[in-house]
């Protein structure tokens, strides 16, 4: 069930659009944020009910977009860009470095559920490559030393 706070937020979003359906993407964002950063099927169904849409339709939309997590993710979701700019300035080496430190491969989560590591497509910070996104924060001009500091800092949170 969506909490009162979540439904309130979704209702304020609906007011921005001429149709209820248009509020679906923002509503899924709200639902995801309220559920440890992922969307279980029940949450999608609740959003569907609230917006008057079929659960299958909402699931169809949610699965189209990569940023809606369909499975639990770690507290810190590391998404390291490995597209055609970052890859030539050391992105793959960075991903391997992080993976080695955390003991996980791409797409995996650490046993303590603190970190999920992913390679991501272009994040749009090409002038400051290589870069990664952790949650909603960007880290740019990365080096292995910088990444070590960031990981140590995140591990404390």
């Amino acid at each position: 069930m969506l909490t009162e706070e979540v439904t309130k937020k979704i209702d304020s979003l609906i007011a921005k659009y001429p149709t209820k359906k248009a509020a679906l993407l923002p509503a899924l964002w709200v639902a995801q944020a309220a559920n440890d950063n992922w969307l279980p099927r029940e949450a999608m169904a609740d959003v569907a009910k609230h917006l008057g849409l079929a659960p299958a339709y909402v699931e169809g939309v949610a699965t189209f977009y990569t940023m809606y997590n369909k499975a639990p993710v770690g507290r810190h979701h590391l998404e390291v860009c490995h597209n055609i700019v970052c890859m030539v300035v050391g992105a793959d080496e960075l991903i391997d470095h992080i993976g080695g430190k955390l003991g996980v491969g791409r797409g995996e989560t650490t046993a303590d559920r603190k970190f999920t590591l992913n390679a991501s497509e272009c994040l749009g910070a090409c002038a400051n490559a290589p870069c990664m996104m952790v949650g909603d924060k960007y880290y740019e001009d990365l080096t292995t030393e910088k990444v070590d500091e960031i990981l140590a800092d995140l591990a404390r949170k």
């Binding site: 597209n83 055609i84 497509e121 272009c122 749009g124 002038a127």
Partner: peptide
């Protein structure tokens, strides 16, 4: 929706 790789 700037997504074209290389564009920032």
């Amino acid at each position: 929706d700037e997504g074209e790789p290389g564009t920032a």
